[in-house]
């Protein structure tokens, strides 16, 4: 199976995230950046599918120069190839523009399965999977907690997490699969994997290479605009007390005081 997995570099989970005041985009310059944790689950699922059914895994990202580190991590985990869409004109793209650009990169790769994860931890849109299905015209098998591929029968079946349980959903190949974090246990890159990754093919593309109209990319083509951003006013420090045998009672008194019970 020809498998494509999207990966995104995001500010480290523990970094203090903020917007760059000059252009209201996520500040990626002054923080440590890592592979979006959720994408590790996407890469793992791609590798599991390859191990079960054969084929090749291509990791695709869009982002600034150093975003290529996200692809490299995927290669270290075991992906075979990488594609990095990198162009100054793409800076400041919103979710719709990002998904549309990714679709332009992914379509010519002719994948059987496109894997995304349910959410990137920076902007937390959780929409790229649905949007890729829309732009690529493929079945949307997102919010998957379990994926079963039947390449012989030409189908993929998932368990889609719902509000109160799950739905079994079937799509004919090619499909877009979106995974949630209950799906697997991502592997760590092995020393061998890290060494091997250095020799794996990694292509860098410009917007023009991908056939993206420069006018449609970046802030000028964005569908929404940030007017202002402010830090949230600091919350008044709370009260923390040690339980001296009356902790429960104190808590009950607090709740009653606040008219919460």
């Amino acid at each position: 199976m020809n498998i494509v997995v999207t990966v995104k570099q995001v500010p480290d989970t523990w970094a203090e995230k903020k917007l760059d005041p000059s252009d209201m985009t996520t500040d990626r310059a002054t923080v440590d950046n890592v592979l979006n944790e959720m994408d590790e689950y996407g890469v793992e699922e791609a590798l599991l599918l390859k191990e079960a059914h054969g084929g090749e895994v291509t990791a695709v990202t869009m982002g600034p120069d150093k975003a290529v580190e996200a692809v490299r991590k995927a290669l270290q985990m075991g992906a075979d190839k990488g594609v990095h869409l990198c162009d100054a004109s793409l800076h400041g793209s919103d979710a719709l523009q990002t998904a549309s650009a990714l679709a332009k990169v992914i379509a010519p790769l002719n994948p059987d399965v496109v894997i995304v994860s349910s959410e990137a931890s920076d902007a937390r849109g959780g929409v790229v999977g649905a949007l890729l299905a829309e732009y690529l015209g493929l079945p949307q098998l997102t919010l998957a907690r379990k994926v079963t591929a039947d390449p012989g029968g030409g189908t993929v079946t998932i368990e889609r997490q719902t509000d109160n349980g799950y739905a079994t959903v079937l799509g004919k190949l090619p499909v877009v699969v979106g995974v949630i974090e209950k799906i697997n246990e991502p592997r760590y890159p092995s020393f061998k994997g890290i060494m091997a990754a250095k020799k794996k093919p990694l292509v860098t593309m410009t917007a023009a290479d991908a056939g993206i109209d420069p006018g449609s990319a970046g802030p000028s083509g964005a569908y929404s605009e940030v007017d202002e951003a402010q830090p949230r006013p600091p919350k008044a420090a709370g009260q923390v007390v040690k339980d001296e045998g009356d902790g429960g009672a104190k808590l009950a008194a607090f709740l009653a005081d606040q008219k919460l019970v």
């Binding site: 937390r124 007017d227 402010q230």
Partner: peptide
């Protein structure tokens, strides 16, 4: 955004 640390207004 960012876990509630930043308040953004946009359109």
């Amino acid at each position: 955004v960012f876990g509630g640390s930043t308040i953004v207004r946009s359109h």
